[in-house]
């Protein structure tokens, strides 16, 4: 049995002087206020196989001789 059946949230006034942020990036959020729900994702797929150092790229075909 739950301790209570409902929760009441009273939002009081918000007063902010100054905010200084360099960057908000990659599914990030700066929220001054209220929200019911928030869902954020972020993927970054570079290492290890995405950085290839070596002669693995297909080279362009050599020009035909006599052209």
């Amino acid at each position: 049995m739950a301790l209570f059946d409902q929760m009441n949230v009273y939002n009081e006034p918000v007063r902010i002087g100054s905010i200084r942020i360099l960057g908000v990036s990659s599914s990030s959020s700066l929220l001054i206020g209220d929200t019911q729900s928030m869902t954020l994702y972020s993927y970054f797929d570079t290492p290890p196989e995405s950085v290839i150092v070596g002669p693995l790229a297909p080279l362009p075909a050599l020009p035909e001789e006599g052209e």
């Binding site: 905010i19 200084r20 942020i21 360099l22 960057g23 908000v24 990036s25 990659s26 599914s27 990030s28 959020s29 700066l30 929220l31 001054i32 206020g33 209220d34 929200t35 019911q36 729900s37 928030m38 869902t39 954020l40 994702y41 972020s42 993927y43 970054f44 797929d45 570079t46």
Partner: peptide, 24 residues
């Protein structure tokens, strides 16, 4: 704020639901 990028958001007020997705 200098930059807001890649499915990011800055909100002043009430809102929602907030959904975001970034794949790089």
């Amino acid at each position: 704020v200098t930059g807001i990028s890649a499915a990011s958001h800055v909100r002043i007020g009430c809102g929602g639901p907030e959904t975001a997705e970034t794949r790089i």
